[in-house]
């Protein structure tokens, strides 16, 4: 384990004054450098490396807590079963993908719209931004509960409003219990909670666009529409891509809302991959199988993360 702890190289980073000191000074500096990262490195090593190694070992085991059979080595069997025989796994992947793509698309469009509107207000927007920020800040448990109330087929305000707007012709849906709309209801909850996040990101991006560019576009006789697509969007693109990736990684983990609002149901139309993993592990107690699913998610999220970080580094010219 010891070689995993970072060893600083002798060279100081940008302190020529320090470099000329004695050899003992260098070793002291080295220990100072280690001391600075040691608490963080040790905590992370202790508490994340163990889970990963443990999980990796489990991937190749069959360990059913519901039977009394001891854990045994089964090789790649778990992974093969997940990928080739488990329809439910693929269904939950599809649900996750729909929520991820649909959610990010809606949130990004509305978020960009709101950011453009807020940007027009100048400094008067502060209060509005604070208000819009509230959904991001509140506990998913509460968000889930709120929407269970709002979607309730008999006493929920959503159906009241629908009835009012259709003059009593139509009483709305059983938003959570109806398999046709349950996924949409979840999607809307996500939109409610996370649109402000993308709004903020785009807003911050807008503020960094130099005003001269807009002036130049106006002088050249560009229409607002052209200015938006030719000036604003290209400049915002890096920021937007980062925002999309952050949201994609987060919605890949979507769990709380599902657990609290629909419990994956009706049937399993709202069962995300995180929720299905949870069921396998903590309701069916198939530990090896759970680990195999976890491992697959790990690979996917690592790929997205790699892409994200590489892109970010590239933007900053760190490569």
């Amino acid at each position: 384990m010891r070689d995993r702890v970072a060893i600083p190289q002798g060279g100081p980073a940008g302190y020529p004054g320090e470099a000329r000191r004695s050899a003992s000074g260098r070793s002291r500096r080295r220990s100072v450098a280690i001391l600075f990262v040691l608490p963080a490195a040790l905590t992370l090593l202790a508490i994340t490396v163990f889970p990963l190694i443990y999980e990796l070992r489990l991937v190749f085991m069959s360990w059913e807590l519901t039977t009394n059979a001891p854990a045994r080595f089964v090789g790649l069997q778990n992974l093969i079963r997940v990928l080739s025989q488990d329809g439910r796994f693929w269904t939950s992947m599809r649900v996750t993908a729909i929520l991820m793509i649909g959610g990010v698309a809606i949130q990004l469009s509305i978020g960009t719209g709101l950011a453009l509107l807020l940007n027009r207000l100048g400094s008067r927007r502060t209060l509005l931004v604070s208000l819009f920020l509230i959904p991001v800040m509140i506990a998913p448990v509460v968000a889930g509960f709120q929407f269970r109330m709002i979607y309730h087929d008999q006493f929920g305000p959503l159906n009241y409003v629908i009835e009012l707007l259709t003059f009593g012709q139509w009483g709305g849906f059983a938003w959570i219990a109806d398999p046709r709309v349950a996924l949409f209801s979840i999607l809307m909850t996500d939109v409610w909670q996370w649109t402000p996040f993308l709004m903020l990101i785009v807003l911050a991006g807008l503020q960094s666009v130099p005003v001269e560019l807009y002036e130049a576009a106006e002088v050249d006789g560009a229409s607002p529409w052209q200015t938006f697509w030719r000036v604003t969007v290209p400049l915002l693109l890096p920021v937007i891509i980062i925002g999309i990736l952050i949201r994609a990684m987060d919605s890949f983990k979507l769990f709380d809302i599902i657990y609290l609002v629909t419990g994956g149901g009706p049937g399993n139309v709202t069962e995300t991959i995180s929720f299905y993993t949870y069921l396998q592990g903590f309701k069916f107690f198939s530990l090896g199988y759970t680990a195999a699913m976890a491992f697959i998610q790990l690979i996917i999220i690592t790929l997205i993360a790699q892409f994200f970080l590489r892109f970010q580094r590239q933007q900053r010219g760190e490569v």
């Binding site: 508490i47 889970p51 443990y54 993993t277 976890a294 999220i301 993360a305």
Partner: peptide, 20 residues
């Protein structure tokens, strides 16, 4: 390496957490 720890879905690492 440090930031990648944050990107793991909690449900993925929770089982070893419980055991530990």
């Amino acid at each position: 390496w440090i930031i990648s720890q944050r990107m793991l879905p909690p449900v993925v690492i929770i089982l070893p957490y419980i055991i530990m």
